[in-house]
Design a binder for these strands. Structure first.
Lengths: 209, 209
DNA sequence: ATATACATCCCCTGAATAGGGGATGTATCG
DNA sequence: CGATACATCCCCTATTCAGGGGATGTATAT
């Protein structure tokens, strides 16, 4: 019987929350909380033994952060599904967690059913997120509409960011190398930078390309 | 009264679907379907007059594509919210639509209530997506776990992609310029490329960085 | 009419890069 | 004990880049 249950571990430093989650999850017969931890280190140490299908992960933890913890756990068991459960909704943490390998990101004001729905959605191959986080994620695909760069300059900068040389840029845009250089000079002046790497860094940060 | 309603336009080439959507949406008193179009060109032409809050957009259209249409409409009215409604769920289209400025992406097998929920979620500043699409989007943040590159090589390639020079890479990684070059040579050989721009292109495509 | 932005092209010089060639030492893995 | 991957360092030469200086023509604003 137990072999067919979804194995879940919980990493959460607050005892009350941790035990509450375990109770809620264990109340569903197809789920089975293998273990709970109040820090990442112990979870990482035992993940091979625990063989979880899902890790329910807090981010604000003593010792190594939840973000790093996700990476470590995914390194050991790449197929484990990590569902982040935290109070934080600021964009850096969300993207860091997703980049580290999280499959979903729900927040702690979720009620019991949202937690269980999140787990179920992760299991079904989905990516549960709050509405606000979904919006942040979608917005991250979109360019800054207030770019100071002209269309042509943006084209040049995109090619530069792809590692193209001046002459390759010139060839692709059917202009001379000198024109490409002129555009780049203007880009540098508009972005107030004076090197290629600074320009790419600023453009990436400000989502100009 | 009408002034307080959410103004919606529908771009959809199938007459039955188009009129069906209009009926469903107009059945909610706070929504108001200003106009419907069977192609993007007309929608773009009239968007200034229509002043929509939301555009419900099909992607498979005669004439210019829905993707381009999103871009054009957002260029004219940057604050309009575009909700894509299509049968296609393949990743390229999804990402193209999001990059072009879509705020949500729902699929046509959605029932009426999903359509209305999508509209409401977009209005509330969210980003409605199907579970499958949310997963695609989240996965797009994650690196390829089967990278052929070593950790060091990945670091070097990341800096290269940021436009850093060999000497800057060397300085940042506390190695000599020659070592950095060696890593780059090895990267080129592993990725079967022979230039910086090809390496960056391949790495980006395969999500190695 | 007069700026201002945009896109295009030219020249110069010193420094950096690309793409070859090789070498060494340390792990790790059969 | 080899073989292999990894990370480190050295040399060489043609090409390219950065950053400076200008110039021209066309739109678009003001």
């Amino acid at each position: 019987m137990q072999y067919f249950r979804t194995r879940i571990i919980i990493v959460e430093d607050n005892k009350t929350v941790r035990e509450g989650f375990a109770l809620i999850i264990n109340s569903i017969s197809k789920y089975f909380v293998v273990n709970t931890y109040d820090n990442c280190e112990d979870a990482i140490k035992n993940v091979k033994k625990d063989k979880p299908d899902i890790v329910l992960m807090d981010l604000e933890l003593p010792g190594i952060s939840g973000i790093e913890g996700i990476g470590e756990i995914k390194k050991i068991m790449p197929n484990v599904l990590v569902l982040v459960n935290t109070i934080y909704e600021n964009s850096d943490l969300v993207f860091q967690a997703l980049c580290a390998g999280a499959s979903g990101y729900i927040t702690k004001n979720s009620n019991h059913s949202e937690l269980l729905e999140g787990i179920e959605e992760v299991l079904q191959g989905g990516a549960p997120m709050s509405s606000k986080i979904a919006k942040m994620v979608v917005t991250s695909f979109q360019k800054n509409p207030n770019s100071p760069l002209s269309n042509r300059e943006t084209e040049v900068l995109e090619l530069l960011a792809k590692g193209k040389s001046y002459s390759m840029i010139a060839k692709e845009l059917f202009i001379t190398k000198e024109t490409a250089k002129s555009h780049i000079k203007n880009i540098y002046s508009k972005l107030q930078v004076n090197s290629k790497s600074e320009a790419i860094a600023k453009a990436t940060q400000d989502k100009l390309i």
